[in-house]
C-alpha cells in the first residue's frame, strides 16, 4: 500500500520563480489498485509521481510504501521496489545499447550488479521468452541497439523492464502521451494487461480523460498542487468523460471568480 501524508514541495523558494508544486498531499493507494492522476498543466501530477519515485526530496510530509517509510531514500534505492515508465520513450532505455543489455539491467533491478557476464545464454533465453509476449517481433532483434526501435516499441520494452521484477508500485508518467494514436492504444492495452495479470499497484499520470475513465479503478484529480477530488472504485464505475470535464470546468470558473464577488453572491443567493 502507498500512503502519502502532508507531502509538500516548493521549487526555487524565496525567488521570483518560486512555485509551490505540492501542498499537503494526502493519498492512500491500496494494494492491487490502479489509480490515475489527472489535472490541468502545472497541477502537480508529474511532481507527485517524481516525489514518490525519489527524483527529489520533498520539503515536508512522508511517503510509505508497503509499510516502509521511503521518504528519505534516494531514487536508486526506491527503484528496487518501484518500476517506472517515463513520458519520453527515450528516457527509459539506453539508446546505444542492445535490447538484451537494457533488459538485463532490469532483471537485476535493486540487486548488486556483479562481475558475471550480463547477457548470458540463460538470460538471453529468458529475455527472448518474455519479449515474445509483447507480440512485436522484437525477440529476434535482441542484439539491435534499442535506439533503432520506434517510440511505441521502446515504451513497450520500458514497461516490460519496469515490471520484469514485480514492483511494489508501478509509476506511469503520461507514458502514452508522446506516441502516435495506434502505438498509444497498443501500449495502453499492454499496460492494462500487465497490471491486471500481475495484480500490480500502479499510479498513472494522464492527460487523456478517455484513458482515465477506461483504464484505472481509481481517479485522483489535482489542481494547483492539491488533490481536489477522488473517484474511488464505486464512483469511478459510473463516471464519464463529461463528468471529469465538468469537474475541471467548475474548478476553472471558481479560479476566475474574484473571492469577494463569490462571497457577495453566496450572501445574495444563500
Amino acid at each position: 500500500m502507498l500512503k502519502i501524508r502532508n507531502l509538500a514541495k516548493t521549487f526555487f523558494p524565496g525567488t521570483a520563480n518560486e512555485v509551490t508544486a505540492l501542498r499537503d498531499i494526502d493519498l492512500d493507494i491500496e494494494d492491487g489498485c490502479f489509480a490515475a492522476i489527472i489535472g490541468t498543466n502545472g497541477s502537480g501530477k508529474s511532481t507527485l509521481l517524481n516525489a514518490v519515485a525519489g527524483a527529489f526530496q520533498a520539503d515536508a510530509g512522508s511517503i510509505e510504501l508497503a509499510g516502509v517509510d521511503i521518504t528519505g531514500q534516494p531514487e536508486y534505492r526506491r527503484a528496487g521496489q518501484i518500476g517506472r515508465v517515463f513520458q519520453n520513450p527515450f528516457a527509459g532505455t539506453a539508446a546505444g545499447m542492445s535490447i538484451a543489455e537494457n533488459i538485463v539491467l532490469a532483471m537485476r533491478r535493486g540487486q548488486r550488479q556483479g562481475l558475471r557476464r550480463a547477457v548470458s545464454r540463460k538470460a538471453r533465453e529468458e529475455i527472448r521468452a518474455r519479449v515474445r509476449t509483447l507480440n512485436m517481433g522484437l525477440e529476434d532483434r535482441l542484439d539491435n541497439p534499442i535506439g533503432t526501435l520506434s517510440g511505441g516499441q521502446r515504451q513497450a520494452l520500458t514497461l516490460l523492464m519496469a515490471t520484469w521484477q514485480r514492483p511494489k508500485l508501478l509509476l506511469l508518467d503520461e507514458h502514452t502521451a508522446a506516441l502516435d494514436p495506434k502505438s498509444a492504444a497498443q501500449v495502453a492495452a499492454l499496460t492494462k494487461e500487465i497490471i491486471e495479470r500481475e495484480n500490480l499497484t500502479a499510479l498513472m499520470v494522464t492527460h487523456s480523460m478517455q484513458q482515465a475513465v477506461q483504464l484505472p479503478d481509481h481517479i485522483v484529480m489535482m489542481h494547483q498542487g492539491r488533490i481536489i477530488e477522488q473517484y474511488g472504485a464505486q464512483r469511478k464505475a459510473s463516471v464519464r468523460v463529461a463528468d471529469l470535464l465538468n469537474a475541471f470546468d467548475r474548478v476553472r470558473r471558481r479560479d476566475l471568480l474574484d473571492p469577494d464577488v463569490a462571497a457577495l453572491l453566496a450572501r445574495q443567493y444563500a
Partner: peptide, 28 residues
C-alpha cells in the same frame, strides 16, 4: 570482458542514460 559484465553494462548505461540507470536501482 569487464564492460560485458553486469557491472560493466551498468557502467555503460550510466553514461548513456543516468535517469534510466537510477530507475533500475543503480547508484549512477
Amino acid at each position: 570482458r569487464f564492460l560485458l559484465t553486469q557491472f560493466g553494462t551498468a557502467m555503460r548505461a550510466t553514461g548513456e542514460n543516468p535517469q534510466m540507470v537510477r530507475a533500475q536501482g543503480i547508484n549512477n
